[in-house]
């Protein structure tokens, strides 16, 4: 490591390093960010939940949406796997079923960015899936 030579230099180094702990920073303040939970029980994984999760992580990052994507266990909607739950800051959670990559794209563009509802919302069958 070469020495940090000025405050501006330090700030540059910080910006580069910040990525390394971004996941931790975001996890610490989930209420201020978009939170997405992907149902990853065996049935979810079989139906492609893992791909949807990777897609969401990559695309949200590319499209500059600050979000925490995490996985959760069985959400209890096996008939509609893969399912994802989206919580916009200050809003009630909304669960989407049968999420394909195309659907995920639509959810990002319409619901997450603009708050418009899209097809595929599942009525929640219990209070929270946490």
């Amino acid at each position: 490591m070469t020495k940090i030579k000025s405050l501006a230099d330090l700030r540059r180094v910080k910006d580069d390093l910040q990525e390394k702990i971004r996941l931790r920073e975001n996890a610490d303040n989930p209420e201020k960010l978009v939170q997405i939970k992907v149902g990853m029980a065996t049935s979810g994984i079989a139906s492609g939940a893992k791909e949807v999760m990777s897609y969401l992580i990559e695309e949200l990052d590319k499209r500059n949406v600050e979000a925490v994507v995490s996985q959760t266990g069985d959400m209890g909607y096996c008939y509609a796997e893969p399912t994802i739950e989206v919580i916009l800051p200050g809003k009630e959670p909304v669960v989407f079923g049968k999420v394909t990559l195309k659907k995920a794209d639509e959810i990002i563009e319409k619901y997450i960015k603009n708050g418009e509802l899209v097809d595929g919302i599942i009525p929640r069958n219990y209070e929270t899936i946490e």
Partner: peptide
């Protein structure tokens, strides 16, 4: 419980040493 204390980079990433920088330069 948030950063690796043996890694200065994690401290810098958390805005570490920017207070020192600010005081020294500004």
């Amino acid at each position: 419980g948030f950063i690796d204390p043996e890694n200065i980079e994690e401290y810098i990433a958390r805005d570490g040493y920017s207070a020192l920088g600010k005081v020294l330069t500004e």
